[in-house]
Simulated scan of single mutants.
Amino acid sequence: MNQIATGMFIARKRRELNLTQAQLAKRLGISSKSVSKWERGKCMPDYAVVNELCDALGISVSELLDGEENERKNLRMYDNDQMIEMLARIQRLENQRVTIIAIALIVMGLGLLALSPLFGGSDLTDFISGVLFGIGIGTTLIGVFLAARSVFAYLGHLD
């Protein structure tokens, strides 16, 4: 699955149908920025809109994932529903990976915060204590941000 090839394929099929990004986005109930990101290969369409996107462009899910039209009817091992379920699983696994990273950052940040008071007494150790404190705060905040984003992404897919 090549995001850039898929994006170029989406753009080509959209233009063949004389649709703007905004018109395609409106049909799918999403923002035109999402369509733009797909077409530039920045991200893949969410599994929740893949069927609608394929219907709107007159292509199959396998063609979308391949980034090209099937010139002949290839024998596929999976049907569209199975392919969409695989995409959903991939997105869930990616979300879980981000959650694990977020938890690790929070734990690491809290550990650094706990270590920072152990240093002190001279200018150098006060500096080290301050650096550990700053890194601990930053790491914890990044972890909290990633965890919140992961939770909101999960909640968005419950519909």
Rank of each mutant, 00 (worst) to 15 (best):
G41P: 07
D55N: 15
N51F: 07
L155F: 10
D66P: 00
F152P: 00
L112F: 15
L124Q: 06
F133M: 06
M8D: 09
I100E: 00
Q3G: 03
L87W: 04
G134T: 13
I106F: 08
V49T: 15
L64C: 03
E39L: 11
T140P: 01
L146K: 03
G67D: 07
N80V: 03
G136T: 10
E52N: 12
A48D: 10
V131P: 00
L132Y: 10
K13N: 12
M1G: 13
I103R: 01
A56H: 02
G136Y: 03
L93N: 06
A25N: 06
Q23T: 06
G143Q: 03
Q21N: 11
I30D: 01
K13E: 13
L112C: 12
V49W: 09
D159P: 06
S122Q: 03
N95S: 11
V49A: 08
A5W: 04
A148I: 15
M8G: 05
D126I: 01
S36K: 09
L132P: 02
T125G: 01
T6E: 09
D55Q: 15
I142H: 00
N2S: 13
L75S: 08
L155I: 10
A56L: 07
V131L: 14
I10K: 04
V35Q: 04
Q3M: 09
L87F: 05
T140V: 11
L75F: 10
I137Q: 04
N18R: 13
E69Q: 15
F145N: 06
L113G: 13
S32K: 14
R14V: 05
A114K: 10
M44L: 10
R97G: 04
L57G: 08
F9D: 08
L53F: 01
L112Y: 12
G138P: 00
V49F: 14
A148S: 13
